[in-house]
Nucleic acid binder design. Sequence first.
DNA 1: GTTAGCATGTAAGGAGTTACATGATTTT
DNA 2: AAAATCATGTAACTCCTTACATGCTAAC
Lengths: 196, 196
Amino acid sequence: MVASRRAAMLELAILGLLQDSPMHGYELRKRLTGVLGAFRVVSYGSLYPCLRTLEHRAWISTSGDSATGRRTKITYELTAEGKEHFQAVLDRAGPTAWEDDSFDVHFAFFGRASRDARLRILEGRRSRLEQRLDAARTEAKERRERADAYTAELHRHGLEREEREIRWLSELIETERTAYSNADRTIDTSAPPDTD
Amino acid sequence: MVASRRAAMLELAILGLLQDSPMHGYELRKRLTGVLGAFRVVSYGSLYPCLRTLEHRAWISTSGDSATGRRTKITYELTAEGKEHFQAVLDRAGPTAWEDDSFDVHFAFFGRASRDARLRILEGRRSRLEQRLDAARTEAKERRERADAYTAELHRHGLEREEREIRWLSELIETERTAYSNADRTIDTSAPPDTD
DNA sequence: GTTAGCATGTAAGGAGTTACATGATTTT
DNA sequence: AAAATCATGTAACTCCTTACATGCTAAC
């Protein structure tokens, strides 16, 4: 029932995109490619079932699929409940938000989240990565003697990448914190309460 | 029949690990976590079926599962065919070798591949990433006006990460090429012909 | 002798991709 | 009017994970 992290992220991304304006599934898919990272392309086989789920939950509504036999373009639109739910998820900023799958999507919609939520997610992610880095370092030590130069280089590079990611997060956290004093100027947009 | 990129990589990793010494499935799994990147843990539900496939293809043989009713520890061991196949895959250095899933595993076994194969894979991967980077940049331009500060930062960071990855590959390529003149000293180990 | 960790497996189910099928609209 | 692209869907299939089931072995 928890709808698999990945599916949940797809849902969130869809709700987020529909926030801007109603759209067709086709258009949605193209934009999703952008939000979800330019890499992972969402297939229609995932998208349409997901849209139906969202409609079923009354978070989106459709217009265009009239009762006539003709097949028509369907425009998906956010409902009031949908907006509410989207905002609630953003502000909850629960522990799933900083997992690998979810982080990017949440980050992409930071502009609509409260600074509180942003900081929680950034910090959550950072400690997640730090913990992982520690584990990797420990493991690397244990393995050291049986690793050849290539394996060693691979792991060195992996650690470096993680470290850099952590530094990036630290900078963002710093920025968010200083932005506190001079009201949202460093990076714009705070969360609009609930209204449109 | 092509056994899904992921499964194929698991197979390669197993063959690679067994090259060093025979092992139990349990031990194998722990080591795989290392080779496959410390992140993705291989479940027994994947491992054992895979081992059976490998045995079926006569690339590994088992010892310990006697005909007596008692359950015994099973030690998996590479066969001559298995070694041959492993080496063939490493030296083929085909286009799949530089895809996301496969690259790390191939890299981890670079010590056993020819310099030729290493260079092919490194260069293949580099142009793969370059091509992806180009696509991402193009897309970023198109999207620029409707992106807020956070989305922009997310993509900026993504591009930077890719660029860094490309630089890393370039350095490795450079190293491999110069190593050519002073016979394998910069990074040790060349591929042992076929023998043990 | 009991707990904890080593060790091997399977079966069911979920998640999502691929391939297919169809139709509307715009461009050439 | 043909071709390309926009647009919507489904069904089968592949793969993997989860949860379960079992038993051995060393340590306390």
